[in-house]
């Protein structure tokens, strides 16, 4: 019996969300008196996988099959299911990413496991119950959910758990294969197209976000958002009306029908704060609102606010960040 952690890698690096998942899995293993094994997917290097020891992982299973570099739902599911059986895993932990949710939902059926997605805290195991807290109603609420059965799968929301770093520990990397056949690659991509990310920071993984709304008046003014984001090392985002009129691509749309983010810092510029937008951001640790309308509803959900013109305030903030050094 052990805890199995699914680690997503990209260009050799373990994704930040997967470091969080590894820490989560290691802590669950400790609670259950067992060890945590990882199974890696994507493009990984042995050195980076061994470094998962810092998050408390003892062993990493890795299949170097080249077709596994890109996400293939069928093949990933089979690989992880085989790893779960090999390790007799009772708890499987993955990131609440597009990959994690796609694979996790298939695994739940294949392994006859109960599944909770969007989980924000470590489980509670008192009284023989296994309970996790998860986000619900698009960020407007939380639900404590009890998982039944012998096997559980947990998809952990990004930025909910801090990744641990215990220097010097290394995990043992073991070659692993699941005897994949061509049929497992039915949904293999014909082509993979990556976005051009400002400063290389992905919005779903970002711990700081600068976001713009209709108050920015037009896409030609977005350099003000980008300049501040760049100075802070933040990702850029936008409100729904902005992506609806194509000022910005839809993958930057944060809100109830866009993506939900929970960074440490969310700076909203010229966004009034409709309830649908708040739903997507209200689990951010610190919210800053800049709006010229003092009655904007977003101020009620903010920690810090500036009532003022974004076109004057944003350059001052960028300057102040640069002066911090």
């Amino acid at each position: 019996m052990s805890v199995l952690v699914v680690v997503e890698c990209d260009k050799g690096e373990v994704k930040k969300s997967s470091l969080e998942v590894a820490s989560y899995g290691a802590q669950v293993a400790q609670m259950l008196g067992t060890t945590a094994t990882a199974v890696a997917v994507g493009e990984a290097t042995e050195a980076n996988l061994a470094a998962l020891g810092e998050q408390g992982i003892t062993k990493v299973l890795f299949d170097a099959e080249p077709r596994l570099k890109d996400f293939v739902n069928g093949a990933y599911t089979k690989l992880i299911a085989a790893a779960a059986d090999k390790e007799q895993a009772k708890v499987i932990v993955l990131a609440n990413s597009n990959v994690g949710a796609s694979v996790g939902s298939r695994l739940a059926v294949r392994l006859k496991a109960s599944l909770a997605t969007n989980v924000v805290e470590l489980p509670k195991t008192d009284g023989g119950q296994f309970t996790v807290k998860r986000g619900a109603f698009s960020g407007k609420a939380f639900a404590d959910v009890t998982l039944s059965g012998d096997r559980k799968i947990i998809a952990v929301k990004k930025n909910s758990i801090e990744a641990q770093h215990n220097g010097g520990q290394t995990a043992q990397v073991e070659p692993f294969t699941a005897q994949l056949s061509d049929a497992d690659f039915a949904d293999a991509p014909k082509q993979v197209i990556m976005q051009d990310q400002a400063g290389g920071i992905l919005l779903p993984e970002a711990d700081k976000v600068v976001s713009g709304g209709r108050g920015m008046k037009g896409p030609e003014n977005w350099h003000l958002i980008e300049d501040l984001a760049k100075a802070l090392g933040a990702a850029t985002a936008c409100s729904k009306p902005v992506s609806d009129v194509d000022w910005r691509p839809h993958h930057e749309h944060v809100g109830q029908t866009g993506i939900t983010v929970s960074p440490n810092l969310y700076i909203a510029c010229g966004i009034s704060g409709a309830i649908q937008h708040l739903a997507g951001v209200n689990s951010s640790k610190v919210i800053v609102v800049i709006n010229k309308d003092p009655e904007a509803p977003f101020f009620k959900a903010a920690d810090y606010g500036i009532v003022g013109d974004v076109f004057e305030v944003l350059p001052k903030l960028t300057q102040a960040v640069k002066e911090l050094g």
Binding site: A108, S114, L115, A116, Q129, T131, K133, A136, G139, K140, A141, F142, A143, D144, V145, T146, L147, S148, G149, N282, S283, I287, V289, F299, K300, A301, A302, D303, Y304, G305, I306, V307, G308, D309, E312, V313
Partner: peptide, 22 residues
């Protein structure tokens, strides 16, 4: 079902906004 909701909670309320002069 394989799961059951034991309890719902609302997110903690914010302390109130600290305003900074523009």
């Amino acid at each position: 079902a394989a799961t059951a909701v034991a309890e719902y909670q609302l997110p903690p309320k914010k302390q109130g906004v600290k305003l900074i002069d523009a």
